[in-house]
Design a protein around this nucleic acid. Structure first.
Lengths: 179, 179
DNA sequence: GACATATGAATGAAGG
DNA sequence: CCTTCATTCATATGTC
């Protein structure tokens, strides 16, 4: 997700605004601030920025670290595609369990032209780059070992909406591994 | 991700305690049966299942335990990538000369629509959405493209050199420039 | 418990 | 827009 998970500690975050920055170049590695701004823009409705917009965004984000316009371009492409795809999956998935239509809670975001305006003036809340909110991805997981036994595994992880179609037996035609 | 997508379902799949006992998983932990089936499919030649196939496989595997389609997607992505990576290792190590017999390895698996058919047999029952119109686009061999151009920059967003902005700070007006 | 490894998940970058 | 590839992050598991 957009969450990124990068925790603060290990991720080779060369958020070197400023001087050298460790260059582990090879591919763009967005800083948390950059991601935040981009995400905000996306959330505010921007999906396919024009060349000009990309330029501007890139310029602004360069303050936080090395970045090229193509990075911005790709970021939006990927984010949009993944968001859509994610949604598609979820939709299908829930479709199979036939009982949670509620899954659609969000998905409006809107698209009015207003977004464009906003964008040109540049982002909203974006920066508070004092933001050290590392997601600190809590994960207070207790223990996750799913039992590996074939038949008892059903409801080990409730909550997701996946557990419902395990009533019919695969009939084991599976061993189609013939070749 | 995988969606290349890759980004399928929700990431925060921590179930909140709910009742059933079992554990709450931060990530999917496949059962042996699930792994076996996936491996068999892989061995039988399936490398990049289509969305439909992923759905079906996922449905079937749900019999053995909790699973989401994204898990199947990631599984194939990872398995394929790692096999290739491993092979590349070996290839590089053992091959100084021009004899690349090893090259043959991944030419065998790729061909014939057998896999597709197999897959269609796979799902059987269930699935109200079972459509037979598979794209059957059959994983047209991947590994052939050796990615020879690291930075081709084909993106249509003009100007690639952006790093110039980096040296002049946005003067922090950024924070205020919104709206 | 630290360390090594295997693997699930994510995402940048392309190619088409 | 779609799919795919490569790399990397994060966590589960195994070993000592």
């Amino acid at each position: 997700m957009d969450e990124g998970m990068s925790g603060f500690g290990l991720k080779t975050s060369r958020s070197g605004s400023g001087g050298g920055g460790g260059a582990k170049c090879g591919r763009w590695n967005p800083t948390n601030e950059q991601v935040k701004v981009l995400t905000d823009l996306f959330r505010s409705g921007l999906r396919t920025p024009s060349t000009d917009q990309i330029q501007k965004i890139s310029s602004q984000l360069s303050f936080y670290g090395k970045i090229e316009s193509k990075n911005v371009f790709y970021w939006f492409q990927n984010h949009k595609a993944r968001e859509r795809q994610k949604r598609r999956r979820v939709y299908v998935e829930s479709d199979q369990n036939e009982h949670n239509i509620a899954k659609q809670h969000f998905a409006e975001v809107v698209e009015s032209g207003r977004v464009i305006e906003t964008l040109q003036l540049f982002p909203v809340h974006s920066l508070s780059f004092a933001d050290h909110s590392e997601k600190a991805r809590g994960y207070t997981n207790d223990e996750c070992k799913e039992n590996t036994s074939p038949y008892a595994t059903m409801y080990t992880c409730g909550t997701e909406m996946e557990n419902h179609y395990q009533h019919r037996h695969p009939s084991l035609d599976l061993r189609l591994s013939f070749m």
